[in-house]
Design a protein around this nucleic acid. Sequence first.
DNA 1: ATTATTCCTGACCGCTCGGTCAGATCCTGA
DNA 2: TCAGGATCTGACCGAGCGGTCAGGAATAAT
Lengths: 181, 181
Amino acid sequence: MSVVRIRTRDEILRVAAELFTRYGFKGTSLHDIAAEVGCSKATLLYHFAHKDAILLALIEPARQSLIDLVARLAGVDDKGVRDAAIEGFVDLVLRYRREVALIYDVTPQFLQEPAFDRVRELTDALVAGFAGRSADLADQTAAKVLLAGIAAVVIDDKRDEGELRPALVVVARRALIPGKD
Amino acid sequence: MSVVRIRTRDEILRVAAELFTRYGFKGTSLHDIAAEVGCSKATLLYHFAHKDAILLALIEPARQSLIDLVARLAGVDDKGVRDAAIEGFVDLVLRYRREVALIYDVTPQFLQEPAFDRVRELTDALVAGFAGRSADLADQTAAKVLLAGIAAVVIDDKRDEGELRPALVVVARRALIPGKD
DNA sequence: ATTATTCCTGACCGCTCGGTCAGATCCTGA
DNA sequence: TCAGGATCTGACCGAGCGGTCAGGAATAAT
């Protein structure tokens, strides 16, 4: 047992990241992944309980970092500290761009839940802080759209009554997309 | 025949836009749309030949405008004109944010096609032009991510041998997501 | 009243999806 | 050599998907 056997598991994650990034989460079937890995579909479900579990495993590092960062940012008034946090936030988004790309395909069902308001506040704070670094209106717009399009990431690992749900959600993107008039 | 009856058709488009924006294209079934509209699934397919046709109808205005804009931008060297075009490009993206949001769910299969190179050049020009307006490195990054995340839109209405394919594709977003090392 | 046309529907089809399961195969330690 | 856990698989399942079709219902034209 000295060396744990995880080669297949790693390969699954590598291929899944590739295909999720290319075709989206819903656009990638277990069959697709299995074929690319060169194993059976059942093998995937031996290593990962559900399809969702593959996505969760992929985004776990980015998710943890974002949790820390947002938590750190939550109780801070000092502008310098906040700016530094925002900078780290953006860097982190770029570093984890592969995982972040997956986010777009996550169903944003949480958005209607009341618990989501706090998250929206934090995102608004991020937007305001980042946009505040430049007086140029175009840059502010850029910042907003930046955060809306990519950095609008959020944490929610809530899973009630055995129902599995992805952990990352798009936030500000919806803020830019108002409901029907 | 004086007044053409298109109320149901419009309602389908309205609901589809809402649901596509919320849950993504693949995340929205014909059943979902029909239930929300209050008609049968078959009615959807009476008004629109395929599910794809609904998406195509929704993004047609944004697509036409983008075609015009990119075409206008293609043969221009003058910096002022180019900047104005870029500004219009961004405005247009914001104006059509609802339609643009749909894009994320479009399968990016075109990206490997050779005909896509010209489009990538244009996108790169857009990125360079926009980023060049600010010397701040962070702003350049913002611009790149902006264009990568939202404005990375492109035109392709190619449809060969009866196979229908969506008309808009994400471009630079993929440029930010390199393949495996 | 009658056609003709447009609009709409329930029933149905083939297919792919995520997921289950019993059992084959491989590996490792005693 | 053998026992036992870890790994892997083909066959199978129910559900949901996009799409088809014959025909009913409403509307407009004659």
